[in-house]
Nucleic acid binder design. Structure first.
Length: 159
DNA sequence: GCCAACGTTGGC
DNA sequence: GCCAACGTTGGC
C-alpha cells in the first residue's frame, strides 16, 4: 500500500466537507505530474494526507483513503465548469480523478511550519522551496512519523 | 496583497 | 527546439 499527500484549498473543498460527504471525487487536477501520479500510481486502498493550502496556516488536517482508482475527469469536458479544458475530449481524456473516502480528521492541524523543521521530511516535495505539486508521494517512514506526531497531539489534548 | 517559483503557451 | 511572456500556485 502506498501513501500520498493531496492539497486542497479549504475554501474550495475542506476536510470538513469530506467528513460531511464521506466520499468525494478529487476533480480539477490540471498539472501533468500530479495527473500521472493519479492516473498511473494511485491504487484503491492507498492512504493520503489531506492538506489545506493557500490559507493563513497551511498544514495536514487529516487522512483519507483512495476509494476508486483513476477515471476521466468529466469537469474537463464541461464548458460551464471552472476546470473546463477544451483540449480534453472523451476519446482521449487528458485529465483524471480518483474518488476518496474520509478516514479521520486530526484534532490539530499539523502545520507546514512544523513539517519544515523535521529532518526526516527534508526530502518531501512539500517542504521544498517553490514546490507546487498538489499530489505527491509520502514514504512509509514519513507517513509513520507524521501519524505518530498526530497521535501525540491528540493525547496531549484534554477531553 | 505581494511576489517568487514554476508550468504552459506560442512566436520564431 | 528555444525562450520570452504570461498565468497560476501558494507561502507569507
Amino acid at each position: 500500500m502506498a501513501h500520498w499527500l493531496m492539497k486542497s484549498e479549504p475554501d474550495v473543498f475542506s476536510i470538513d466537507d469530506l467528513e460531511r460527504d464521506k466520499t468525494a471525487s478529487w476533480e480539477g487536477v490540471r498539472n501533468y505530474q500530479a495527473r500521472n501520479i493519479i492516473r498511473d500510481e494511485m491504487k484503491a486502498g492507498d492512504l493520503a494526507f489531506f492538506y489545506h493550502s493557500n490559507i493563513g496556516a497551511p498544514g495536514i488536517v487529516g487522512v483519507m483513503r483512495i476509494q476508486k482508482e483513476a477515471y476521466p475527469d468529466d469537469t474537463a469536458f464541461d464548458p460551464n465548469s471552472e476546470y473546463h479544458d477544451p483540449k480534453s475530449d472523451r476519446e482521449s481524456p487528458r485529465w483524471y480523478q480518483v474518488d476518496v473516502a474520509f478516514e479521520e480528521k486530526f484534532k490539530e492541524t499539523i502545520p507546514l511550519a512544523w513539517l519544515k523543521e523535521q529532518p526526516l521530511l527534508a526530502d518531501c516535495p512539500l517542504v521544498k522551496r517553490g514546490n507546487r505539486l498538489s499530489v505527491m508521494p509520502v514514504t512509509r517512514k514519513q507517513w509513520r512519523f507524521i501519524m505518530q506526531h498526530a497521535r501525540r497531539g491528540e493525547r496531549r489534548l484534554p477531553q
